[in-house]
């Protein structure tokens, strides 16, 4: 008994969902490609591959860049949406009280039971992009790209867990069933430089961009798409920043979730 079984419970829930909902499995595989095709299609509307590169501000192969961006964007959205939104999901299904009486701290139950889901989904999506990466970068280059992107997914998740748990705790305390994440997610993505480079932002937005962990995750994705011209020092720096943010945001969320738990249990919001 312990955190291992808690992690396994999250995994087994998803496996059961996939087994009984084939349509969900198909859509999970189709969605990243749809997003990638849309992003690339819009990019190429503005001109040649060279124009596209200069418009987007990257030196990499646009396909590889957008594979990386799509993966990281989807993984980031997934953490934000699922960890925060899991409270709502369980409230809607009526399973929330039964989740909360698991013999752990409530925040631990909500966050830990989600991690396997995140890793499963993210790595399944990474796996489906591997053929594209090999096509663009060759066997060794493609696999190396996939490896770095996998690393970005794992390291990028760590600070986001805490960040998303803060919003999850907020949702736990309010009785209204409104998912604030549905409007927060796109804002976070824009501010993180998922769509436009952060240096183009006004000063206040650049500041917000700096404190968002997703900014560094996207930067890591950008660099990972430049593996042909590796910037190991920059990657190491970004990984260090993300690990530092992981400690900060997870410590903060642990404190805030403790307070939110108490407030929710006091107000009868559960």
């Amino acid at each position: 008994m312990g955190l291992w079984t808690l992690l396994k419970s999250g995994l087994i829930l998803d496996i059961y969902f996939f087994k009984n909902n084939r349509a969900q499995l198909v859509s999970m595989f189709a969605w990243p490609y749809i997003l990638l095709v849309l992003m690339l299609g819009m990019g190429f509307l503005f001109g040649s591959a060279e124009t596209f590169k200069s418009n987007v501000g990257v030196e990499a192969d646009p396909v590889v860049f957008f594979v990386a961006s799509t993966l990281i964007a989807m993984a980031s959205m997934s953490v934000m949406w699922e960890v925060g939104g899991t409270v709502l999901f369980h409230r809607w299904t009526g399973t929330l009280p039964y989740m909360l009486i698991a013999p752990y701290r409530i925040s631990v139950t909500l966050v830990m039971s989600y991690i396997p889901r995140y890793l499963l989904w993210s790595f399944m999506q990474l796996a489906e992009f591997v053929p594209v990466l090999i096509w663009r970068e060759g066997l060794v280059g493609g696999l190396a790209d996939a490896l770095v992107m996998g690393l970005a997914i794992v390291i990028g998740m760590l600070p986001l867990l805490g960040f998303a748990a803060i919003f999850g705790s907020f949702l736990l305390t309010i009785k209204e069933e409104t998912n604030v994440l549905s409007w927060l997610n796109p804002i976070v993505l824009i501010l993180s430089g998922a769509f436009y480079p952060a240096y183009l932002f006004p000063l206040w937005a650049r500041f917000l961009s700096m404190i968002l962990p997703t900014t560094y995750t996207f930067e890591l994705a950008r660099i990972s798409s430049l593996l042909g011209a590796p910037k190991l020092a920059e990657m190491t720096f970004l990984i260090a920043v993300l690990l530092g943010m992981s400690i900060f945001y997870n410590a903060l969320s642990f404190t805030l979730m403790g307070k939110a738990e108490k407030k929710a249990l006091k107000s009868g919001a559960v």
Partner: peptide, 18 residues
């Protein structure tokens, strides 16, 4: 209080593990 798209057994397996 259970997941609609899971069987009774699967629901119990999940909650048991939780």
């Amino acid at each position: 209080g259970f997941f609609w798209k899971l069987t009774g057994r699967e629901n119990l397996m999940y909650f048991g593990m939780l």
